[in-house]
Design a protein around this nucleic acid. Structure first.
Length: 277
DNA sequence: ATACCGACCTGTCAGC
DNA sequence: TGCTGACAGGTCGGTA
């Protein structure tokens, strides 16, 4: 489901709603697939921890946890622990009242001191929950923070299609199928072009297009396709501004040529055969 | 070392 | 109506 703009929207919403709340107790579902850390360890790490902050790292939602330690000295020496949630394709994190019906495919529930619950729901179970100690970092560069030279260096020597390079989380964290296609369209570059073969001018345009499309999408609250909603259950509306993604056969917004769909490394790629070279 | 491809899951929708 | 197959926002691990 979620790429950088959606995860950013969800993380901001969660930060507003649960920052400062304390986790009273934890329920983890029977089927432990989504757990990257063992259930007892996760329950122990979460139980009675205070949520200091919720933020996005790549496509991950990171909950910074604090223990209820009294002295500042004790606080400064405590191990910093994070609860890291990856939503996969269909994962959702919802703040709910305990009376609210428990949705099918609910895999984790955190009971909060404020009386509310934080629920993790994920039909396809591609999502992952993990506990980290001592600082969580994504492997790739943050597309919104990276400078142009850093960005350009990622593509040098890569013979893979530029679309695959954009999706590679070890290079850039947070770019998924929607925004890779949309950035390539705005940069007028075909998805199958070899990354290393892009000219410096094309790279610069791609760099700017990617930043712009991600920022625009964050402002729009993300793209809602089928089931994406933010922490408040509201839909984003950036899907209305997709120019190529899932528009196969529809006219290009620039030249009216039908949008084409191809498969690259097992993922669909959408582009305008006339505008993109 | 690098890059593709199937596997992991469930749900939905189009076509027959 | 019901079956089948294609497809879906992501990431792994095995293989070439």
């Amino acid at each position: 489901m979620p790429e950088l703009p959606e995860v950013e929207t969800i993380a901001r919403g969660l930060d507003e709603r649960v920052r400062g709340d304390v986790i009273r107790s934890v329920w983890l579902g029977e089927k432990p697939e989504p757990l990257k850390s063992p259930a007892p360890e996760m329950a122990a790490a979460l139980g009675s921890a205070r949520i200091a902050r919720v933020r996005r790292v790549g496509k991950h939602i990171v909950f910074d946890l604090e223990r209820g330690l009294r002295s500042a000295a004790a606080k400064s020496t405590q191990q910093n622990t994070q609860w890291v949630v990856h939503l996969g394709m269909t994962g959702r994190l919802l703040v709910a009242s305990p009376q609210a019906e428990i949705a099918k495919h609910t895999h984790a529930i955190l009971q909060l001191a404020s009386g509310r619950e934080l629920r993790f729901v994920d039909p396809r179970r591609f999502g992952r929950l993990a506990v980290h100690h001592g600082g969580f970092a994504a492997p790739g560069a943050e597309p919104l923070d990276a400078g142009f030279e850093e960005f350009a260096a990622l593509f040098r020597k890569r013979r893979t299609p530029v679309k695959s390079a954009l999706l590679n989380q070890k290079l850039l964290s947070g770019v998924g199928n929607i925004y890779a296609d949309e950035a390539l369209f705005r940069a007028r570059v075909r998805p199958r072009r070899r990354a290393a073969r892009l000219t410096r001018g094309e790279l610069r345009l791609l760099y700017r297009s990617l930043k712009r499309v991600l920022q625009e999408a964050i402002r729009a609250g993300g793209s809602s396709i089928s089931d994406y909603v933010d922490a408040d259950g509201d839909e984003g509306f950036f899907q209305l501004r997709h120019r190529v993604y899932q528009r196969t056969g529809e006219p290009c917004t620039a030249c009216r040529t039908p949008i084409r769909r191809v498969v690259i490394a097992g993922r669909s790629a959408h582009y305008c055969p006339r505008c993109q070279v």
